[in-house]
Amino acid sequence: MGRLGIDRERPLFIVDVDEVLGLFMASFGVFLQGHGLELRLDRYALFQNIYAPGAAEHLDLAEGRRLFDEFFRRGCADMEPAPGAAEALRRISRQATVVVLSNAPAPARLGRARWLGRHGLDYPLMLSSGPKGPPAAAMAARTTRRCAFVDDLVSNLDSVAEADPGVARFQHVADVRLQPLAPAAPDRHRRIDDWTELGEAVAASLAER
């Protein structure tokens, strides 16, 4: 974790990639089309939204996982960045350390790092798996200042709240098609789907004493 460059005397901003910094589902959908499949946005889910054309039942979950892993080996470099994300992070980085925390498969590290750099998001990257509370709390413990966390999934936001309640938490869903489908918990985590507004809210939370 030392390679992340966390400064004890600076605030810390931890941010997710898929559907936060990048339009993951749009890119994954294009990838699936190349395999003769389709992504139906019927719910806020991943593998349960993969179908063969005309099929009534979604693809087998194990096959969905295989395609997900293949996407990160071959297709994730084509993902479009979320509008406004790069500029918002540039502003936040003037006052805080920025770390990208992504639940991507380990083979995706190089491709994901190159994607971040290509889109003006060249910040330290940490890959993890499972709930994000433990790694986020471990990072937050390395600074004496405020910490903020952004993710699209309520489950990860809840995990961070449990692991370190002092971390400011924000939910963001980048793809406008998914915003009405994404579960939210506004009583626990502030939901902001516009990066300009979100960047200002994060900066304000990090400036608190």
Rank of each mutant, 00 (worst) to 15 (best):
residue 75 G to I: 03
residue 206 L to P: 03
residue 28 F to K: 01
residue 11 P to V: 07
residue 194 D to Q: 09
residue 157 L to E: 01
residue 77 A to Y: 04
residue 36 G to T: 13
residue 105 P to H: 08
residue 185 A to H: 03
residue 76 C to Q: 13
residue 126 M to W: 13
residue 183 P to T: 15
residue 124 P to L: 10
residue 66 R to Y: 07
residue 179 Q to W: 01
residue 81 P to M: 00
residue 132 K to N: 03
residue 40 R to L: 10
residue 168 A to G: 08
residue 175 D to N: 15
residue 176 V to S: 12
residue 208 E to N: 06
residue 22 G to P: 02
residue 140 A to Y: 00
residue 137 A to I: 02
residue 167 V to Q: 02
residue 9 E to I: 07
residue 177 R to P: 05
residue 88 A to N: 03
residue 165 P to Q: 09
residue 66 R to I: 06
residue 174 A to I: 03
residue 119 H to T: 11
residue 165 P to V: 13
residue 124 P to E: 08
residue 118 R to W: 08
residue 178 L to D: 06
residue 107 P to L: 05
residue 81 P to V: 00
residue 142 R to E: 08
residue 112 R to M: 15
residue 175 D to E: 15
residue 112 R to V: 11
residue 181 L to I: 12
residue 188 R to Q: 15
residue 63 E to P: 01
residue 27 S to A: 15
residue 112 R to N: 05
residue 6 I to Q: 01
residue 56 A to Y: 02
residue 52 A to T: 14
residue 89 L to C: 07
residue 117 G to S: 07
residue 156 N to A: 07
residue 116 L to T: 06
residue 160 V to H: 00
residue 165 P to W: 10
residue 201 A to E: 06
residue 6 I to T: 04
residue 72 F to P: 02
residue 79 M to A: 09
residue 107 P to S: 11
residue 131 P to K: 11
residue 46 L to Q: 08
residue 158 D to G: 02
residue 173 V to C: 10
residue 183 P to C: 12
residue 117 G to D: 10
residue 94 R to V: 07
residue 159 S to R: 00
residue 152 D to Q: 08
residue 208 E to D: 14
residue 129 S to P: 04
residue 15 V to C: 11
residue 183 P to Q: 10
residue 144 T to L: 13
residue 74 R to Q: 13
residue 74 R to F: 06
residue 101 L to A: 09
residue 170 F to I: 12
residue 123 Y to L: 04
residue 201 A to F: 11
residue 143 T to D: 11
residue 111 G to T: 07
residue 208 E to L: 14
residue 75 G to W: 03
residue 109 R to C: 09
residue 92 I to H: 00
residue 126 M to K: 13
residue 23 L to A: 04
residue 92 I to V: 15
residue 93 S to Q: 13
residue 10 R to W: 05
residue 100 V to L: 05
residue 118 R to I: 06
residue 133 G to I: 01
residue 84 G to S: 08
residue 22 G to W: 00
residue 99 V to A: 02
residue 157 L to I: 03
residue 110 L to N: 13
residue 115 W to R: 04
residue 43 R to V: 10
residue 155 S to M: 12
residue 188 R to C: 12
residue 93 S to I: 08
residue 9 E to M: 08
residue 126 M to H: 15
residue 81 P to Y: 08
residue 126 M to L: 15
